[in-house]
Design a protein around this nucleic acid. Structure first.
Length: 888
DNA sequence: TGGTTCACG
DNA sequence: ACGTACGTGAACCAA
């Protein structure tokens, strides 16, 4: 995708004048410690910040007038004659305006004999031919003559921050003329501030009428004889020479000899330090504070809430009936809500806040009823967490209405903090602290003993939930994301909670067996490596390993990292055969990984009481809409290599005679791509049930029949397909399948040639992302991509690939989420014993009694298939066995 | 705490 | 010429 270049040209004198007079009434308030007036500087600065934010320029130049006399004076000696002298309060500020521009990293320029306008005109013209989008900022309407399709003239309004944008359309609206005709108008009307006369008695109205009729001054005089006899005609004839001269004076030059080029004025960003120094010099304390504030937010002032501390006795007396909505927050000390101590709760009903440390009180019938009644709407922060926490008390949270955490994530998947205080801030609500500020972190994590502090914080949380509900639900509806919330994410949070509570059984004896076997092999390999290296060292340290390989053994350095030599697999593979140690290191790494992460790691998190692992799915983390899994991560259990795959033998059903059943979507992301890109070729391949990678191979290698596809071709084609989904680059593809960049580039070109619909999609989604600032999935999940207009190539390219990938990966995530909700519903309706236990992005894993297997084989694919109706069929494959390993 | 490596889709 | 594949989590080292 081509880089977008945005040129910003500022009429320095004109903006400074505007700024000076806009703040003229408070002139004496803007004086620094040296007695320098600073109002124009201040105004100029405000304008700059504003325009930078709006335009995001890649190139900037601020043009100034060089002096009083210009070439226009040789044409007309009275040009700009009789002007009042620039007030010294203003002229003394010019050197500082320029100094400020330098701190901003912006070039400024002036040229003897020419006005700022001519510099701007010339650069704007050059920008036009080089594909820039140009914005011109000025206080002078005459510059609107420069407006074109790609050049906008922003004329400052009363203040300096407000501008009126003149596009050719807007010029037409405003004057009824094209930008080029502005000078014809000036020629007829003249300009009192520049002190040139035009044609006597002709004002704007008459001028516009004439130009509309005859197109230009030239046109008027060519047809002057046809005009009816009138006073106006007489004046026209009389002032003909003046008209032409004034037009020439008004015409901004676009071809003057400049010593700067567009390349010279690329903007490299603000010099923070210089700017801070400059603000100190100017006594701009507010700006300094603001710059500091960006680093460390100031302490907030939080209003107190009156609360009642609940007890068994009090509860007996309180009457909660008649309430239809509550805000509720259950506090647990620690992230893992399966195990974290339940340390308190807060309940908001109407204007009342109730708190307690003793969560057993929640079992009191009056409180239980509030949480379990399907007619009482419960507003919460993190419904899944709350559901699991309450489940531990034997309470079944039933009617979650507003889930602040979930809604915040849906509004913008980048807002993936899970702290209530942080998220509240993002939504402009500041009356609550972050948990870390109240509870501390790490080893210091604890609930305050002080009741006022602790209960106050709990109440603030409940109040935050209540206060933010309306505005956030409004935003959700503005984004058309209600369905996503009500039909997908909110019900899913409960489905996930149930899966997490169920957990999956781990055969710890099997794991331990494997562990001791791996241990032995690890120490054997270790010994061999030490012998080959000639010394003992820490094999787990890439740094020490690097020294051995690249310094002691003098192996060639393939790749470097920030901190030293890279010893990653891709590097070691290239060194294979050069020394036997390499193979051993690779083997060591492989086994050590399995041992530490999967054998030992898994044993550590297996619950003693039920011999199960209870993962937590993070529903509000990924920027694409996928789930992730922690504590333990059950979405990255080994499968690709035989050794690691054995780990799956340790995942077993909870009953002896049960089975592990698994169904997965086949190539769901490519199918989603075929659907959203509507590429005919790709859709046909799927509709006909072809092997998509082989089909791609046939296409890009120009084969006539599937029999000609070799396994290597298919492998390469598969990599191309993956690359496409990731937002392809020749470099990445080359890296992945070990071909040259040139070859990779040819593959990609060929691919786009045979799948033109895909190419169009890629272009469309990137330009739409640039226009809207975000991309969406099939179910309107939204990801903002502010970097899509970055001036940094790497950052921008990354955003572009993200724009291509997110709708694909995210829509696939949407689809399986729908399937999970329907699946859980079906299991309940059919009263099956089978449990849905895991989700691994495109696959669902169940445990079930033998006799239910045939039911699952029939219905799971059916439900998954029916989750969404695309232009092309989805495909689901199932399998089962005694362990997860055998369900393949 | 950040960097590196490696497990998965 | 630029220098990357998209999305994750956990273990480990080094500071």
């Amino acid at each position: 995708m081509e880089e977008k270049k945005r040129l910003l040209l500022i009429d320095g004198n004109s903006v400074a004048f505007r700024a000076f007079f806009a703040l003229h009434q408070s002139l004496e308030r803007f004086v620094n410690h040296d007695g320098l007036h600073t109002n124009a500087i201040y105004g100029f600065k405000t304008m700059l910040d504003n325009i930078i934010e709006n335009v995001e320029p890649t190139h900037i130049l601020v043009a100034f007038d060089a002096g009083k006399k210009t070439f226009r004076n040789t044409k007309y000696s009275d040009y700009k004659g009789g002007r009042a002298k620039t007030p010294t309060e203003l002229s003394e500020q010019f050197p500082y305006v320029k100094k400020m521009l330098e701190a901003y990293g912006m070039k400024h320029y002036e040229l003897k004999n020419y006005e700022a306008d001519d510099i701007i005109g010339t650069l704007a013209y050059q920008g036009e031919t080089q594909g820039f989008e140009t914005t011109i900022v000025t206080g002078d309407r005459d510059l609107t003559q420069l407006a074109t399709k790609k050049t906008t003239v922003a004329v400052t309004q009363k203040g300096v921050t407000e501008v009126e944008n003149y596009t050719p359309e807007h010029v037409k609206e405003k004057y009824g003329l094209t930008p080029a005709q502005i000078i014809d108008m000036k020629g007829l009307v003249g300009d009192s501030s520049d002190n040139y006369p035009g044609v006597a008695k002709v004002g704007e109205k008459t001028a516009v009428k004439l130009i509309k009729q005859f197109e230009s001054i030239e046109g008027i005089y060519e047809n002057i004889d046809a005009l009816k006899k009138s006073k106006m005609k007489e004046h026209l004839v009389e002032d003909k020479e003046k008209a032409f001269m004034c037009k020439d004076l008004a015409r901004i030059r676009c071809d003057i000899p400049l010593k700067v080029t567009l390349d010279d004025i690329e903007w490299t960003g603000i010099d923070e330090k210089a700017l801070v120094d400059f603000f100190h010099e100017m006594d701009f304390k507010r700006f300094l504070e603001k710059m500091k504030m960006d680093d460390e937010p100031s302490q907030k002032v939080i209003q107190n809430i009156n609360f009642d501390v609940l007890s068994q006795e009090k509860l007996d007396q309180i009457d909660f009936s008649g309430n239809k909505e509550i805000s509720f927050y259950l506090e647990m000390l620690g992230e893992n809500y399966h195990t974290a101590p339940l340390v308190g709760f807060v309940l908001n009903i109407g204007a009342k806040y109730y708190v307690a440390r003793d969560t057993k009180l929640l079992k009191h019938l009056k409180l239980r009823k509030l949480l379990e009644d399907e007619n009482i709407a419960v507003d919460v922060f993190d419904g899944k967490r709350t559901f699991v926490g309450l489940d531990r008390l034997g309470i079944h949270l039933t009617a979650v209405r507003f889930d602040l955490l979930l809604v915040s994530y849906l509004l913008d998947t980048s807002d993936n903090s899970n702290d209530l205080g942080k998220l509240a801030q993002l939504h402009n609500y500041t009356q609550v602290l972050e948990d870390e500020q109240v509870y501390g972190k790490g080893s210091k994590l604890k609930i305050p003993e002080n009741d006022t502090e602790y209960y106050g914080h709990l109440c603030n949380k409940a109040r935050t939930i209540k206060k933010l509900r309306n505005s956030m639900m409004k935003k959700l509806s503005d984004n058309h994301q209600e369905e996503l919330y009500y039909n997908i994410e909110r019900p899913l949070s409960i489905v996930l909670a149930e899966m997490e509570i169920d957990g999956i059984t781990v055969d710890t004896r099997r794991l331990e067996e494997m562990g001791s076997e791996f241990k032995e092999r690890i120490s054997e390999i270790k010994e061999t490596i030490y012998q080959e290296a000639g010394e003992k060292f820490n094999l787990n340290s890439p740094k020490q390993l690097g020294v051995i390989l690249f310094e002691k053994m003098k192996l060639p350095v393939i790749k470097k990292t920030k901190t030293g030599y890279s010893t990653a697999v891709s590097v070691l593979e290239k060194l294979r055969g050069m020394a036997p140690i390499i193979d051993n290191i690779l083997k060591y790494r492989q086994i050590a990984k399995i041992q530490s992460t999967y054998v030992e790691g898994l044993l550590k998190v297996t619950f003693k009481k039920d011999s199960k692992v209870h993962t937590r799915y993070t529903q509000t983390l990924t920027s694409t809409g996928r789930l992730s899994s922690v504590d333990p991560n059950l979405q990255n259990i080994p499968i690709r290599l035989a050794e690691g795959k054995k780990i799956r033998q340790a995942f077993i059903p909870q009953e002896k005679e049960w089975q592990i059943f698994s169904s997965d979507y086949s190539q769901i992301e490519l199918r989603v791509l075929a659907h959203i890109s509507r590429d005919a070729n790709m859709r046909a391949a799927f509709s006909e049930g072809q092997d998509i990678h082989a089909n791609t191979a046939m296409n890009i290698f120009e084969l006539d029949s599937p029999t000609e596809v070799t396994s290597n071709m298919r492998r390469q084609a598969k990599a191309v397909n993956f690359g496409i989904v990731y937002g392809i680059s020749d470099y990445g593809l080359a890296q992945n399948i070990g071909i040259t960049r040139k070859q990779a580039k040819e593959f990609i070109e060929k691919y786009f040639q045979v799948f033109p619909g895909v190419k169009e999609y890629m272009e469309r989604i990137v330009s739409s992302a640039r226009e809207k600032g975000y991309v969406e999935t099939l179910f309107k999940r939204r990801r903002y991509l502010p970097d899509i207009s970055s001036r940094n190539y790497n950052i921008r390219s990354f955003a572009e690939r993200t724009a291509m990938n997110t709708p694909i990966q995210g829509s696939a995530a949407d689809i399986i989420k729908v399937a999970m909700i329907n699946m859980q519903k079906m299991l309940k309706e059919k009263k099956l014993k089978a449990k849905m236990l895991l989700q691994v992005h495109d696959e669902l894993i169940f445990e079930a009694p033998n006799e239910e297997i045939t039911v699952l084989e029939k219905f799971v694919p059916k439900v998954m298939d029916a989750a969404v109706s695309l232009d092309i069929p989805l495909k689901v494959e199932s399998s089962y066995g005694k362990t997860w390993f055998d369900a393949k």
